Simulated assay, not measured.
Amino acid sequence: MIKRDGLYPLQQIIHENPPMQEVPDVKKPHISQEAVVSAGSIIIGDVTIAEDAFVGFHAIIRSDSSYPMFIGPRTNIQDYVLIHCHPAEYIEVGEKPMGVFIEDSVSILHHAAPHGPLFIGRNTFIGQHVSIYGALIGRDCVIMHGAVICNYVKIGDHRFVEPGQVVSTQEQADALPAVPETYKHLNGSIVDHYYRLGKSYRETTNLFL
């Protein structure tokens, strides 16, 4: 399937990182055969993408100058999402340093920019155009469209961030309300949709890796 080194038929670029002072070891992405990587996407370096994950069109996941990244099972990374990490900074997951760690069944919507060091917990929803720069985000959270999260804040489980809200201090993070009843099943429906969509793409089209 490879047209030439690292370039796949629909312009997916799956390639090892260049050696850098920050990341001297050269590593290729590890992508499950049950994952879907759509046309135009770029995945560089020590990135693991687990089974049934969906990477949308023109998404970019760059571990070219950072610690490893992990995208969990049934997580959907939608179109034009950019995932990167600050060089030499990391979080610890099971005593292992990671640049970005995204657990299972997370939704990250179009044009979001999750920037590490970053942890996103299971069943969390990240809306369109959300900007994150350094954070620990718990499980079952809902981060609505256009929100900004930064300065390495820690957001607990089941927390809600309103559209356009800025969370830049730990005091603001600690004051976040619980997810309203209206949004409690939002992420589950999206995860189910993208799981089925990925399966359909694999079975009926060539628009995937």
Rank of each mutant, 00 (worst) to 15 (best):
residue 2 I to P: 06
residue 2 I to F: 11
residue 3 K to N: 09
residue 5 D to H: 09
residue 6 G to M: 08
residue 7 L to W: 13
residue 9 P to Y: 08
residue 9 P to T: 10
residue 11 Q to P: 04
residue 13 I to M: 11
residue 16 E to M: 14
residue 17 N to K: 04
residue 20 M to E: 14
residue 22 E to Q: 10
residue 23 V to G: 01
residue 24 P to C: 07
residue 24 P to Q: 07
residue 27 K to D: 04
residue 28 K to I: 15
residue 33 Q to W: 01
residue 34 E to D: 13
residue 35 A to T: 00
residue 36 V to M: 02
residue 36 V to A: 00
residue 37 V to Q: 03
residue 37 V to S: 01
residue 38 S to Y: 04
residue 39 A to Q: 07
residue 41 S to D: 04
residue 42 I to F: 10
residue 42 I to C: 12
residue 43 I to M: 06
residue 44 I to M: 08
residue 45 G to Q: 06
residue 46 D to K: 03
residue 47 V to A: 06
residue 48 T to L: 07
residue 51 E to S: 13
residue 53 A to N: 14
residue 53 A to D: 12
residue 54 F to Y: 13
residue 55 V to G: 03
residue 57 F to P: 00
residue 58 H to D: 11
residue 61 I to K: 02
residue 62 R to A: 06
residue 64 D to K: 02
residue 65 S to G: 10
residue 66 S to M: 09
residue 67 Y to L: 12
residue 67 Y to P: 02
residue 68 P to K: 03
residue 70 F to N: 09
residue 71 I to V: 13
residue 72 G to V: 12
residue 73 P to R: 15
residue 75 T to Y: 06
residue 77 I to Q: 07
residue 78 Q to S: 09
residue 78 Q to D: 11
residue 82 L to W: 13
residue 84 H to R: 08
residue 87 P to E: 14
residue 92 E to L: 12
residue 95 E to R: 08
residue 97 P to L: 06
residue 100 V to K: 07
residue 102 I to P: 01
residue 103 E to P: 01
residue 105 S to L: 06
residue 107 S to G: 13
residue 111 H to D: 15
residue 112 A to L: 07
residue 113 A to P: 01
residue 114 P to R: 02
residue 114 P to C: 05
residue 114 P to W: 01
residue 115 H to G: 02
residue 121 G to K: 01
residue 123 N to E: 12
residue 124 T to V: 08
residue 124 T to S: 11
residue 125 F to H: 12
residue 126 I to Y: 03
residue 129 H to V: 15
residue 135 A to G: 02
residue 137 I to P: 00
residue 139 R to S: 06
residue 139 R to P: 00
residue 139 R to H: 05
residue 139 R to G: 00
residue 140 D to C: 06
residue 141 C to A: 07
residue 141 C to H: 03
residue 141 C to F: 03
residue 142 V to I: 10
residue 145 H to S: 12
residue 147 A to C: 10
residue 149 I to G: 00
residue 151 N to C: 06
residue 151 N to W: 07
residue 152 Y to T: 10
residue 152 Y to Q: 13
residue 155 I to N: 00
residue 156 G to F: 04
residue 162 E to A: 11
residue 162 E to R: 08
residue 163 P to F: 11
residue 164 G to Y: 09
residue 165 Q to C: 08
residue 165 Q to Y: 11
residue 166 V to F: 12
residue 166 V to W: 14
residue 169 T to W: 13
residue 169 T to V: 11
residue 170 Q to T: 15
residue 173 A to W: 00
residue 174 D to L: 09
residue 176 L to E: 04
residue 176 L to F: 02
residue 177 P to Y: 07
residue 177 P to N: 08
residue 180 P to T: 07
residue 181 E to N: 05
residue 181 E to I: 07
residue 181 E to C: 02
residue 181 E to S: 05
residue 185 H to S: 14
residue 186 L to K: 09
residue 188 G to D: 10
residue 189 S to M: 14
residue 189 S to I: 10
residue 189 S to W: 15
residue 191 V to E: 05
residue 191 V to C: 07
residue 192 D to W: 14
residue 193 H to S: 13
residue 193 H to Q: 09
residue 193 H to C: 08
residue 195 Y to T: 05
residue 199 K to G: 00
residue 200 S to W: 03
residue 204 T to Y: 04
residue 204 T to C: 01
residue 206 N to R: 11
residue 206 N to G: 15
residue 207 L to E: 13
residue 207 L to R: 06
residue 208 F to G: 04
residue 208 F to H: 11
